[in-house]
Amino acid sequence: MFEARLLQGSILKKALEGIRELITSGNWECSSAGISMQGMDPSHVALTVLMLQNDLFDQFRCDRNVTLGLNHATFSKILKCAANDDIITLKAEDQPDECNLLFQSANDDKTSDFIIKLTDIDQETLGIPDTEYAATVKVPSVEFQRICRDLSQFGDTIIISVKKGCVEFSGTGEIGSAKIALKESGNVDDDEKVSVEMDKDTPCSLSFASRYLNYFTKATSLSDTVTLQLCPEHPLVVSYDIGDNGSLKYYLAPKIEE
């Protein structure tokens, strides 16, 4: 028996917004630790990893590990039937062929009950090695969304460069070029803060497909800040924290430098 009740049902709605255009369907692995889902886009350029720990839920029960093979277009259609302030409960049997979704309005005057049929998804799980990143940058998620959108007008590649105290995003194309630099904020302790941490103060610069960065920013509403981690010759990590008990992370393979 699996049952998970999420008071802040909007979290699930927002998380799926950040997933559904990248991964058509995925195995949502439920265990006593929580719910996780990993998947690649059809071109195998980006890996998306969602983690919802049991503490994120106000009620969580998972007697045996359960795999929910979900079609994300269908899942998204059903979640759109939930209001932003609804409480969402997911329920499934031990070896399920369907999953039950229950939406309760905040004042408990409306309940909606849905059943989604599960599919067998033959999907390999990739191992993500521990990496010491050369640079870790935190920026307001709305700012990152805007930069990715603005630079996409110039070409299909965005170069992210980190040097001491500064992160620079640039793009070049037929119409011209653009360069947007964010300087590290002073001692401001709020979500507007930009922080740049570097290992060994070595500048780091990598090129990425703007299309994928724009897909990732669909998760903007999950968190006020986004963390970017870079390492030469490694995938970029773009992380949105879901409170203290969850995260949506994207790993994006770099483009080959010309």
Binding site: V45, E124, T125, G127
Partner: peptide
């Protein structure tokens, strides 16, 4: 996609 590396060249199946 030209010039694009694959994520599977970095991460492998355990």
């Amino acid at each position: 996609m030209p010039g694009q590396r694959s994520i599977t060249s970095f991460f492998s199946s355990p």
